[in-house]
Amino acid sequence: MDLLFDLLREAIAPTTAAFALAAIGLNFHFGLTGLLNMGQAGFMLLGMYGYAITVREGGPIWLGIIVAIACAAVFGVILGWPTLKLRGDYLAIVTIAAAEMIRYLGRSQNLNDLTGASTGIRGNDFKGSFEELSPFPDSMVTIGPFTFHGTRSTSWWLVLVGWTLVGLMVLLYWRLSKSPWGRVLKGIREDEDAVRSLGKNVYSYKMQALVIGGVIGALAGIVWSLGASVQPDSMGRPTTFWVWTLLLLGGAATVFGPVLGSILFWCSLVLVKGLASAFIPTTVLSSQQLEPFSLALVGVTLMCLVIFRPQGVLGDKKELAFND
């Protein structure tokens, strides 16, 4: 059954890992702290620009990662500074607007030399140094039922790095959410004023959460771009909305929710497309229509999730991430 292999392949693909990372970041924002960050794609895009441009200009990998992290952190601080004192939906509007601004700026002709405008940055310009580090052979490698290239683009090397990062971030989330620091964030999610009355500096904690989640988003962006290329239009609003969908699917405020959500999300997409192309004749649903059809289903899924099972697959009904 080819479809089954496709599903399993999708489950371990670097894209899945990248989205799991982005969702872990969003989980710090929304799951722990209740912040409505609608611009996670902006953090991801900044991350990939930061990394790709640094490496393209001859910088080492570690510097690229630091630049990516710094970009996301500064972006978070700038966004949070005016909005974290305001009502929650202001943050939603500002983050979505700011993420779109990053994208518009990135694809602007004015910055062609830096960002490559709307064509973005080609993979060959920045992936080299990462791929050289690969311990895998420079050819197609088959492990079990899966065949990936050893080093290039969507490779075993990137699968290894991507999922190791996911593992580390899951650990990070677990450690922090079970610490007194995480307790303060949960308190803020429940009621800011109560936490203030207990002597905690709510603004500072919200800022910390926004920055740490955004930085993880930037790492997600790097992993994503190493599997493809830097393309501003692939980090538009739909990307943010997908991250939200898969976080809610897996279960916000849970440790493994983002990971499970990402796997379920991408596998279901493959499954829907596979089944639809197998069973629905092309006269009814052409191959060109398959993509929007399945993405329309994503939208419906998001609606149904929020309405009928806001705690997601792994969540505890009593600890919903939504306020009443």
Partner: peptide, 19 residues
Amino acid sequence: TFQLTKALSRMTVIENMRL
């Protein structure tokens, strides 16, 4: 404390206290 109680509903009682 507040007129309209601000118990942190989706945290356990002991976590409320520790906070």
